[in-house]
């Protein structure tokens, strides 16, 4: 494995650490559902591998992976939007 991959991993840990502590506790639930939705990015792994897949079984497994990741992405973003909309609505009425 290349060294730059490890560099990326370590640097991402630092970015994650600072970015997350910056989030207000008020929005910890939306934080969970947004991160949940973006964990659907793993769909790229499935799409990348699908091109090389030759047998029926790997294609099926990868399509299933795409299916579950899609539920994760759409469901996660939709519910985050619902929550954040409520916080936004209130902010307007009180200022």
């Amino acid at each position: 494995m290349d060294f730059y991959i490890i560099d990326i991993l370590i640097l991402s840990c630092f970015i994650g650490y600072f970015a997350i502590w910056n989030v207000t506790p008020l929005l910890h639930s939306p934080l969970m559902s947004v991160t949940n939705a973006i964990s659907g990015i793993v769909i790229l792994g499935a799409l990348q591998n699908l091109n090389q897949s030759e047998s029926l079984i790997t294609t099926t497994l990868l399509l299933l992976a795409i299916f579950f990741a899609a539920i994760n992405i759409f469901g996660g973003f939709h519910i985050s939007a619902r929550m954040l909309h409520m916080f936004k609505r209130k902010d307007k009425t009180n200022d």
Binding site: S12, G16, V42
Partner: peptide
């Protein structure tokens, strides 16, 4: 690298 960066962000969260 995209999956590593995004995954780590979620893991940290």
């Amino acid at each position: 690298s995209l999956l590593i960066i995004v995954g780590t962000l979620i893991g940290a969260s």
